[in-house]
Simulated assay, not measured.
Amino acid sequence: MKIDLQKAYDSIEWRFLQDMLSGLKFPHTSIELIMQCVYTPSYSLALNGDVFGFFKDKRGLRKRDPLSRGDLIPATLLLSIFETFSISSGLKMSSGKSSFYSNGVGDIILKGIEDASGKLFGGLGIVDTKQWNIAAVGKLVWWIARKKDNLWIQWVDKVYIKQTDCMDYKPTSASSWAWRKVCEIKEVFKDAYVQGKWSADDEKYTINDGYKWLTQHDMSRVPWFKSVWNKFIIPKHSFILWLLNQERLLTLDRLFKMGITQQTRCFLCGIHDENHRHLFQECVYARQCYTQLFAWLQMQVPVHLSTDSILRIRKHTGFTRLLLSSLVAAMQYHIWLCRNTCRVDGYVTHPAVILKRIKFDCRMRLMNISVGSLKRGEIDWCTQRGLM
């Protein structure tokens, strides 16, 4: 499901924008540059690894911020939710730019969406709605186990459970569908109750706790969590770095295995086959970019260019470690961007330009962080390197 809200972006006339800029006394040169950005964009389609054709944008300002995507929530429920949202907020769904996709989505992809768990465990922090619903019903199970002073709980105890231990109780075929479902979920949480979870008088069950137990009790934390997700890293950089750590970027070796392309030679160096390790650590171009970065930081280029090995240099801790992780994430993002640009447009960006873009990105990110939260030495470190 892709929902796009109808805003001024979708209905504003380009001529009106130009007249408004003129009315606000913008310089003529600035107006021309802005309108060039509005008038000139063109798009092409990538099919089976090849790019086809170009077509022009026709109406509205460019905007790439789809509100949400999901595959597990029924369309009718989503539409009712957005209708309520529209009434309360005044924002309407743009039917011309909203779509629902379900055909051809395999079980593996859907399972991948369900398994996108907390960031601490290597996921994207997407809530698994199925597990959340189970955790919500788990609260009813906890009420029954604790014999909560509730009319429905008392009725269940008298009609169904009677003198049986609630954890050993088995529903009969004559039981209602809803009650059988509650008993199924009771079996899911049985191990937690047997082990003493939420059994103490002062330990209250919450849906959030139940959800965490369902999704994380058998997971282990990933060591690169803080290197990917911290406030110093631009979100789009974090996302590319997350895919890199999972080795899920569409590098040529993966596209070859999928049967999408026959080319495997690296676009940037043209010597070796492209894969995650080569593109971001071993490629001559990548090492040239890192040489520029570490020369600017007055640091020695490490032998291995993995994120962990870079962050272990001089045993960086605290602020410098977080900032260095931001620079590394920006570097890997721009290497991936340069690779895609080379694939489509046929040219490779000079490493000095890559470094300039990384400095700009990190400078802009630091501007969004309260300077009051930084120590004097940290501010001096950034100032000496032109980041403030």
Rank of each mutant, 00 (worst) to 15 (best):
M1T: 14
L5R: 00
Q6L: 08
K7D: 14
A8Q: 04
M20L: 15
M20A: 12
L21K: 04
E32N: 10
I34G: 03
C37Q: 07
Y39E: 10
T40L: 15
Y43G: 05
G53I: 01
K58S: 13
R64H: 13
R69Q: 15
G70E: 13
D71T: 15
I81V: 13
S86V: 07
S94N: 14
F100N: 09
I109R: 06
F121G: 01
G122K: 00
G123R: 00
A135E: 03
G138H: 01
K148G: 10
K148H: 06
K148R: 12
V159R: 06
I161L: 10
I161M: 04
K170V: 15
S173W: 03
S175Q: 02
V182F: 03
E184N: 06
I185R: 02
K186T: 11
F189A: 02
Y193V: 10
Y193E: 01
G196T: 11
S199Y: 07
D201Q: 11
K204A: 13
K204I: 15
M219G: 00
S220V: 05
S220A: 01
R221W: 02
K226G: 02
K236D: 10
W242L: 01
R254K: 15
Q263G: 06
G270T: 04
H278M: 09
V284C: 06
Y285N: 08
Q288E: 15
C289A: 13
C289Q: 07
Y290N: 06
F294A: 08
L297S: 05
L297P: 09
Q298R: 05
M299V: 05
V301T: 08
V301C: 10
P302V: 00
V303W: 00
L305P: 03
T307Y: 00
I310R: 00
R321A: 11
R321F: 04
L323D: 09
S326E: 11
I335K: 08
W336C: 10
V344C: 06
G346C: 11
P351S: 06
V353R: 05
V353I: 13
I354C: 14
R357D: 15
D361P: 07
R363K: 15
M364S: 13
I369T: 09
S370T: 09
V371Q: 08
R376I: 15
I379D: 07
T383K: 10
Q384D: 12
